[in-house]
């Protein structure tokens, strides 16, 4: 995630890369909710956009290549909220376990 000069993976300006892929997608409800949670939690002073970026950067290049944009975002939002002490790992784990039992689709698990 850091090359021998100290350059970090996300700092990609000027590096070689392939052709542009112009494909676009509409955002899913859960992705829009991640975006909204980031905006609302940072507006409450629970973390900053730089805190969000810092956690995204620290996740490393593998996350960039293997996770979608809002998957990385919710992971970073979580990292920042844990650091802020908003909830504990135990609380999060218990609730995620409960949610997983609600159904097999996002709609079922989110109750809408």
């Amino acid at each position: 995630m850091t090359d021998t000069t100290g350059r970090r993976w996300h700092d990609m300006g000027g590096l070689d890369a392939g052709p542009l892929d112009p494909a676009e997608h509409d955002f899913a409800l859960w992705e829009k909710r991640v975006d909204a949670l980031m905006v609302l939690a940072s507006a409450k002073g629970l973390f900053t956009v730089d805190g969000l970026r810092r956690a995204l950067e620290d996740m490393g290049e593998e996350a960039f290549e293997s996770m979608s944009y809002y998957e990385r975002w919710i992971a970073s939002v979580n990292q920042n909220l844990l650091e802020a002490g908003v909830y504990s790992i135990e609380e999060l784990g218990a609730r995620m376990e409960d949610i997983s039992k609600r159904g097999t689709t996002y709609s079922e698990a989110a109750n809408g």
């Binding site: 850091t2 000069t5 100290g6 350059r7 970090r8 700092d11 300006g13 000027g14 730089d50 970026r53 810092r54 950067e57």
Partner: peptide, 13 residues
């Protein structure tokens, strides 16, 4: 300089 951590100065500059 090339410190680790979150900085907003791109390496290419």
């Amino acid at each position: 300089m090339m410190p680790p951590g979150h900085v907003r100065t791109p390496a290419y500059l």
